[in-house]
């Protein structure tokens, strides 16, 4: 994609959301929890994100859709600096979390990740007991006494709608759970450190429909207290659970709006064609 075209797209976007934002309340009581500004990201020589500017609303579910390899996962991995794990990544631009640029050098990444939790594509429970999995996060923060941990574990598992299924076998290995249970365990694990934001990277892509439905119900519950950003391949899923939707294509954010707007009256032709199933 040429540079000229990419500039054009981001201008259009800025104009539009600028209009939209004017009607919102101003400084001091911002509706946004995460904002990215002119974000560019390279893996070695390949540019994976091009001028992405995006606002994420507090306590809402935001879905990112788009074809494979469009940069959705890369984008949300920027929000908790998970891309730091790889050493071939270069980033320019800014990401603000509650007004603080988290790409700054002074940022303590570990503390940031406590505020912004993440759920991965494949359930990745640690090879230890269910209890220890949930207690992993609190233990990092030096909460070690059982009398303090027990209520956290119970509360988190309840929030993740897993408590009833595992309360009698907390000392079993997490590996013995089914795929859907494992994913809910991972959600419970993330909730145990009380984050503000939950990043979900295609959390249901490796699960069967029943487990998926459970996770989706859970997300609907979670948005009362948390901001959820979910990457999904599944457009029905985006319409079912999200309040806002962003459509990405080849590393650019093509369109961002309320989910209703995107799926019923998309402004960009590209979006229309993708939602219409004409490519993807």
């Amino acid at each position: 994609m040429s540079i000229v075209k990419s500039k054009k797209i981001s201008e259009i976007y800025t104009e539009k959301s600028g209009k939209y934002i004017k009607s919102q309340p101003i400084i001091g009581d911002s509706p946004f929890i995460i904002q990215s500004k002119e974000l560019n990201l390279w893996y070695d020589e390949t540019q994976a994100l091009i001028n992405v500017s995006l606002n994420i609303y507090k306590n809402k579910v935001t879905a990112l859709i788009g074809p494979s390899g469009c940069g959705k996962s890369t984008l949300i991995r920027c929000f908790n600096r998970m891309n730091d794990v790889y050493d071939n990544v270069d980033i320019t631009g800014e990401i603000f979390y509650s007004g603080l640029n988290i790409l700054g050098k002074k940022i303590q990444v570990t503390k940031l990740r406590k505020k912004i939790g993440m759920i991965f594509q494949k359930p990745n429970p640690f090879p230890m007991t269910i209890y220890d999995n949930v207690a992993y996060g609190p233990r990092i923060q030096k909460i070690n006494r059982k009398c303090n941990l027990d209520p956290i574990v119970e509360k988190s598992l309840k929030k993740a709608a897993l408590w009833d299924e595992v309360k009698d076998r907390l000392d079993d290995s997490a590996i013995s759970l089914s795929g859907g249970q494992q994913q809910r365990l991972c959600i419970a694990r993330a909730l145990a450190i009380e984050p503000d934001v939950l990043l979900m990277d295609e959390p249901t892509s490796s699960l069967d429909p029943i487990a998926t439905a459970k996770i989706e119900n859970l997300i609907n519950e979670l948005k009362k207290k948390y901001t959820v950003i979910i990457v999904t391949h599944n457009m029905q899923q985006a319409t079912r659970i999200s309040d806002y939707t962003g459509f990405m294509y080849l590393g650019e954010l093509i369109e961002f709006d309320s989910t209703e707007q995107i799926f019923q009256k998309p402004k960009q032709d590209l979006t229309k064609r993708y939602i219409g199933g004409r490519f993807g």
Binding site: Y13, T14, S17, G18, I21, K22, Q24, I26, I27, G28, S30, F32, Q35, K37, E38, S53, L54, N55, E94, F96, Y97, S98, G99, L100, I102, G104, K106, I107, Q108, V109, T110, K111, L112, K115
Partner: peptide
């Protein structure tokens, strides 16, 4: 003067809870 906002203007309010993100005593 009332500031208007666009997507590229960033709100400069910092809730006290995240202030400690900036402390550099990580290791």
């Amino acid at each position: 003067m009332v500031k208007t906002m666009s997507a590229t203007t960033v709100i400069k309010n910092k809730p006290s809870s995240i202030l400690d993100l900036e402390l550099k005593s990580e290791k």
